[in-house]
Amino acid sequence: MIMRNRFFPSMLLLAALFALAAAPAVAAEAPIPKNNPDSTELVNKMNVPGDITKGLFWNGKTVTFHGEAIGEVMVRDSYAWIHLNDDAYMERNVEEGAKLGGYNSGMAVWISADLTKQIDTYGDYKHEGSIVEIEGVFNAACKEHGGDMDIHATGLRILRAGHVVDDPVQPWKVWLALALIAIAVGLWRLDRVTRNRISPHRGI
């Protein structure tokens, strides 16, 4: 009787311990909120619709922006260029099963090269890049960088570490490839045989 009474609380305690242990992982996978403003709004939003002389709404303002570090860091002396994508593939790319969600979109960020050392992974076919949050001044046409649209960042924080992406070969593709190779070889032989039958001396 005593045993039975202790069983359920023990199970509850065990479950709670498991939940606590799993909490960081669950928290890590929680969806990252959308940027405000996001890259699309930074490019598009104007003070007065249709009046380009008024300049862009966000131009010169300090923004907080996060996105997947993509490609590579390009260090130029003590500063560096990184590119942060805040698109549909920021947390998971197509190879990992993300639904297609349009083009990539993001922002170029000019930042201290030392700060970029925190970024462990840059996104490409085999990697999902770290999700990085930066704070800095948005320039619709940067005076320092030949009119480029960029953010001059003063701070950087890693929201989620990057990881390696596996893209295993799909078995149905292998079977399809083998079948097509067999047909192609057969037709190649047929082509050679019928060609020689018509004219034994003709080349291609």
Partner: peptide, 29 residues
Amino acid sequence: EWDTAVDFIVAISACMIFGFGTQALCRTQ
């Protein structure tokens, strides 16, 4: 990039099937 490599083997085979097939069928001087 093995999955991509298989994609290209499929596509190459498809091209060869079309190419050799039409050449075998369309024999003319």
